[in-house]
Structure formats: C-alpha cells, structure tokens
Design a protein around this nucleic acid. Structure first.
Lengths: 223, 223, 223, 223
DNA sequence: GATGAATGAGCGTTCATTCAT
DNA sequence: TATGAATGAACGCTCATTCAT
C-alpha cells in the first residue's frame, strides 16, 4: 500500500522476480514430464515436485491440468516460430544455404533442445486436444511448411533445383527432422538405440540436395 | 492358447471360432483406442464396450491393462514382419523396384491399415514400457532397417545408385512413411489437415530416387 | 444370457434385491448425515461408511454428490405428500378433526421420523440448490399449504371457525410444527434442551383452536 | 482490544475508527455469507473479498474460521438481547401491548435486519458447534422464552388472557416469527416465493390474541 | 497492520482390478 | 465362460492456514 507510488512501483525484487518466472519454471517442468510419460500419465504432483513447488502452487498459475498443457504448447511455440523466421531472413538469397540453415539450425535450436519434445507431445495428444492441435497446426506447422516451400520454390525458380512438386515438399523435408526428434524422446531415451544426430542430418541433407538436383552442380564445377 | 489336442479342437465350429477370435477382437478394439487416445487415457470400459463384451471379460484373456498393451503390440508386430519379408522375396533382384515395393506396399499393407497406428502408439509409450519398446525395436525396427539398408547397398553395389552412406539410410527412408502414418492418427484425424497419401508417397519416392542418383531425368539432362 | 426368457426373468434373488435396495440405503444414510452436519460438511466417505459400502459404490448409483442430494430430497418427498393426501381424504367432513389430524399425524408420520430432518436440510441448502428448492416448493410446500387452507376455509364456511384471513393460515399452522422438527435436529440434538413434543403440540393445537374460534363451542356444550 | 491507555487511545481519529471497526466489518461480511451459503460452503476468500480486505487480514483478527463463526454469533447476540430487554421496559404494564411489541419489534429490529439470518445459521450449525449452540441457547433463547412466558403469565394473572399452559407458550409464540426469518433466508431468497411479512405478522397476532382469549371480537359476540 | 504467494491436508471423482453369481 | 456389482488406491482440485515481505 505504501509503495504504490509510480516511482517505487517495483516491489521487493527477489520475490517479484520469482513470481514472474514461476509460470515458465512450471511449464518447463510440465513439458519434460509430458514428453516423457504423456499427458495423462503425468501426475501434477510430479510436475510440482520437479519444479520445486507444492501441488497447490500450480493452481495459482493455471486453472487446470488442461490449461497447463495449453500453456506448455503455447509457450514452446513462440520461440520456435521466431527462430524459424530469423533463419529465413538470415539466408534469404541462397536456397541451398537456406535449406541447410533450416535443417541444421532447426536441430540446433529446437530439435536438440527441450523444445524438441513438443512434436512428440503434440502428435500423442492431438486427438485429445483438438483445439490445441488446431492452434499448433495453424501457428507452427502451416507457417513452417510455407517457409520451406518458399525456399524450395525459390531454388527451382533460380534454376538451382530441378523442377519438383513443391506442394508437399515441406512435409517431406521435415519428416526426417521430426523423426529424429521423436526418436530421441521415445526409443532413443529407453533402449539405448540412439541415433547419431549429426550423421543422420548429414545423410538426409546429402540425399535431399541430390534429390533436388542441386548436388551435381558442384561436381561439374569440380570437373 | 494352441495347446488343445487336435481331437478336442474340433468342437462346434461357430462357437469355437468365436472363442478363439476373442483375444484378437479385444486387441483390435484396444489398438484403435490406444492409438486414438493414448494408453493412459483409454479406459478398459471403452475397450470392452467397443469389443462388445463386459469389462470383466477382458480379465479372462489379459492379466492387466499393461498385459493388454503388450498383446496389442505383439500381435501387431507379427503381420508387420511377415509382410516385410514377403516384400523382400517378391522384389529380390531389382533395387529400384525393391524400394518402390517397400514404400508403396508398406503403406498399402501397414501404414494405411489399422496397423498404421502402432508407430504412434509405440512412440508415445516407449518410455513408459521400455521392455515392450526394446522388443519392438529388436523385432521390428532393426529388422526393417536392415532390409532397407540391404536393398540400397545392393543398388550401390550394382551401380544403380550412387555411393551414399548406407548406415542411416534406412531411418531416412522410413521417416516420411512413419510421418505419414503418425500424421493420419494425430493432426489428420482432428484438424482436417489430412495429407494426400498418394501424392506424398510419389513426392517422396521421386525425391529419393533422384537423391540416390537412380532417376532417369537427371541422367537425360546429363547427356 | 440363458435366463433371459420372460419366465425366468428374475435373476438370483439376494443379489438382485440388494441391487434394488441399494439406492434407498444410500439416500437414507445420506439424509441422516446431511441433516446432522449439513451438505457441505458431510463427506462421502462418511455416507458410504454409514451405508456399509465403499466410496466408489456411491458412484454406481449417483453421478455426483449433488445428484445424491437431489435424490435424498426427491425420495423423501413422495411419502410425505402421499401421507398428507391420505389424511385429507380420511377426515374430509370435520374441519376440527381434519386439522387435528394434520397436526398430530404430520408429527407422527413425518416430523418425528427420519423425514423430519428434511425441512432443516432444505432450509439450510435452499439457496445453494435453487432448482431443488423450487421443486420442493412446488411439490411439497405449495401443496401442503393448500391442504391446510382448504381445511380452514371449509371450517369457516361451515361456521365452525370464525372468519379469519385464510391467505397465510397455512404458513402459520405449519410454523410451530416445522419449528419442532427443526429444533429436534438442531438444539434438541446437541444441547439437551429438547422440547416435549406432545405438550408442544397440545399447546399449539389448543391455542390454534381457540384462535380460530372453535374451542368455546365444546365448552358451551360442557355447561 | 480495549486495553489501550486512554492517552494513546486518542490517535488520529479516522484511522482509529477504521481499525476498531474492522472486526465488525469482517463479521458482518461473514454473517451474510454464512447465512447465504452455510458455514462450510463459505470460503474465507469470499468473506475477505466482501469485506474488502485480503484473506490474510482475516487472521489478524480471528484465529480460525471457527473463531470467526463464534465471533459472528457472539456479536449478533448482544444487540438481540439488548433489543429484547429494551422492549420489555418500554411495554411493561399491558400484556397485550407487550406481546404486540415483542412481535412487531422483534421483526423490525431483528428479524428483518441482518441479524435475522442468525436463527438460520444457528439452526444449521448447532450440531457442528455444540458449545456455540449451548451459549446461544443459554444467552438468547432461554432468556427470550422467559420474557414471553412472563408476559403471558402476567396476562393470565390479570385476567386478560384465558388460562393457558404457559410452559411452552414462548416456543409457540416465537415459532412463526422464526419461520418468517428462516423463510426469508431460504426459499424467500431463491424461489421468488417470498412471504408478505406484515400480513403474516398480522395474521399471526390476530390468531394469537384470539387464541389467548384476548381479542375484542369474540368478547363482543359473547355479550 | 496488511498483503498475497505458498502450502498441504483433504475431498470429490475415476478407474483398474476382483469376485460372487 | 461371462457378467457387472463392488472395491480402494490414486488423482485433480480446493481452501483454510501460514509467513516472508
């Protein structure tokens, strides 16, 4: 009451910072558990414990378990999109570099981080949470696919790539990346059968470039 | 299960057929529900209802919900393997035909059928059922990957494909197929954003063949 | 399945009878606890324990605690009404006897029995369950008040009672009866300050008859 | 509470008044909510919100929810008693006027005010708070009943009323008044079926006076 | 004195599992 | 073999209570 003057508007710093950081601490804990065990099999006790708070505290920030799920997705999605758009701008002119950037940076910034669990989570729960799935589809998937299609189309137009059907090229492009992320959070995490991410990405990029007809060019120069 | 003496086995046919078919009717109902809602979110009530039996009847055939899960996987795995091996024998000599066969027949016989839900189910639950995942990994995945690697290697050896790193080619090959199956049972089933399977497969096979250096078009340009 | 013939339609008797009697055992246990402690303060554990079943069993018969509350009221109300209407028919011609019957029989059949707790319960919870209150008001209260007003009006028309305002006479008539029932389940049950029901009823009936101008007559006959 | 020295007591007036008024603002908020929803169903959040303070503030004045309940009753009881005694002194000599005063003034000063909710609250919670009920019984009920019995007895002794059994006359006298107050806070507040208080009181007083043999009309007929 | 973030015990509800029929 | 009534452990959620600020 006394500190409400516009000047001294900030309350005691540590408490305040905690209050503001809490939701992200909670969604981070929830994300890792949802990815690990699935939404239904994750108990809120565990989420709270992993975040280092009590069960009741969750309800200070989220109305329900479902609301927590939505927040997990919504919060994980924003960085993913921003990262993607940043990539597009960085390598605007060179299609090969652009696709290489999408591929390796997606893995570096998303696939290999905590966010890499979101595809598994969304695939597992899409049918149980159609609205969230629709939001994710609209906000992340469509937008991401368009980025890739644009990049490929640009390469085709520039004569760097052969003429391919670009309609579904985004899905094809992403499929191995998502597979890698899904694998990491399923078989890779339980059976020791982990994939070597770098070699997998290299194999895929090599095959993709040849498949788009972009690989022979360097070789011809090499003749 | 099959230990009945040949003599006693010839009881009244229709009744008998019903009794023997029961477990498969139950696992079929369970599979579709597990795929739809996930293992944890599926109630045994629902499984029983979909199979047209009472809840207690489930326990005549399966000791627990987890046992039912294992049976669902185990039962789905056998046809998958047999189908895969049949493919290999049918198209043994021609690597291109072999890969085309794997791709389109996998989709026709597995991906597009009820069995196509198993990848989603296994991915979602692998960490909750490590033994089942290990069994699946050993029995289905490794074996399937070896099939593909063998086929590609044969193509390389025959000079039909360019020299590619065949170590992870199986994973790359399967990724879009699995992606298609996963999609069908997640976003495709809830957001109307279904993928056109045929065009997707065509796009992928075209890209793959070019990527392996086996497609005619680039060769013609190379003339 | 075999016994489904119309003849042998009754299943094994003891189990079946139990199944049919259960809801009433449960509502009886719930009524006494709701009356004793109030709806909100009553735990379903207690209800189940008092009925001799487990907590889960409650949910085989009632969808929720609120549904149980509604059932308690609905079930308690039917006998009350039927008893009231039976009285009216038994003593149709003599207003004094009719009112005496209402008064003493209401107490004997309702007020002093388990049903006597319903007024306390309904008064306490009316605002929390408006639909139930509306149902009770329509089904029990209005109907009961009309019975009494009819009886008094008949007495006035016959010249047995003086001309009184019959509009609210039903409420006045019932007030001491309800007070007695309420008392029994509040102060009477906790502070030892129990009321002597017979003397209370006698006092009230005596006052009422004199108030309606019906008492002097017998005395005059006695002169 | 009142142990502050007379000197220190004269601090800044408006602030002081606020601080001293706090407990009563809190009990007033609590009373209305307890009456509305019952003790158990009332959340301290709501009480605090209605009083315009934070939830923690409640605990500066009351040790627990139960202590708040006791304070609500204790605080409501003092005005009730003082009002009752004031009535007795005002109409000491004439029994009819005395009873009329009790009746109409009880309604005016208690029944129709915020205090009119206390009977409902006490009836509902008597068995959950036996000590409070005992205190209330001793402090309010017995004393009130004695007042009325004394008044009626005086009327009988003076020959104004006929000889009635005065033992339970207080309970009978109060029953319709309490019924009216209870009704207002139960059905009257939720089903639109409100009672017309004035007509109800008139009907009751008319019936009562005739019942006690004190009404003019019968006497005139008797001439 | 006043706040409101945090707690954790407890309740309503669900559901895998059992068992008498 | 098949049923479905019954169970009870466990989970989501609430809310009285505490305490650092």
């Amino acid at each position: 009451m006394a500190e409400k003057s516009p000047v001294a508007a900030q309350r005691s710093a540590p408490r305040r910072r905690r209050k503001e950081a809490r939701p992200q601490e909670l969604t981070a804990a929830a994300l890792s558990l949802f990815v690990e065990k699935g939404f239904a099999a994750t108990r809120l006790d565990e989420v709270a414990a992993r975040a280092g708070v009590s069960k009741g505290t969750l309800y200070l920030y989220f109305d329900s378990k479902e609301a927590l799920f939505k927040a997990v997705i919504a919060e994980g999605v924003v960085p993913a999109i921003e990262a993607g758009e940043a990539m597009l701008e960085r390598h605007a002119d060179d299609p090969v570099t652009l696709l290489r950037g999408f591929l390796y940076e997606w893995w570096a910034l998303i696939g290999s981080t905590e966010l890499g669990g979101i595809p598994k989570l969304m695939m597992s729960e899409a049918r149980n949470f159609p609205e969230v799935a629709a939001y994710y589809h609209e906000t992340v998937i469509r937008r991401g696919l368009r980025l890739i299609r644009t990049a490929v189309q640009r390469g085709v137009d520039m004569g760097v790539f052969r003429r391919v059907n670009t309609e579904l090229i985004g899905n094809v492009f992403m499929a191995p990346l998502l597979h890698l992320a899904l694998w990491r959070h399923s078989f890779g995490a339980c059976c020791g059968g982990d994939l070597d991410a770098q070699r997998f990405l290299d194999t895929w990029f090599d095959l993709l470039m040849h498949g788009l007809g972009a690989a022979p060019a360097p070789r011809e120069e090499a003749r």
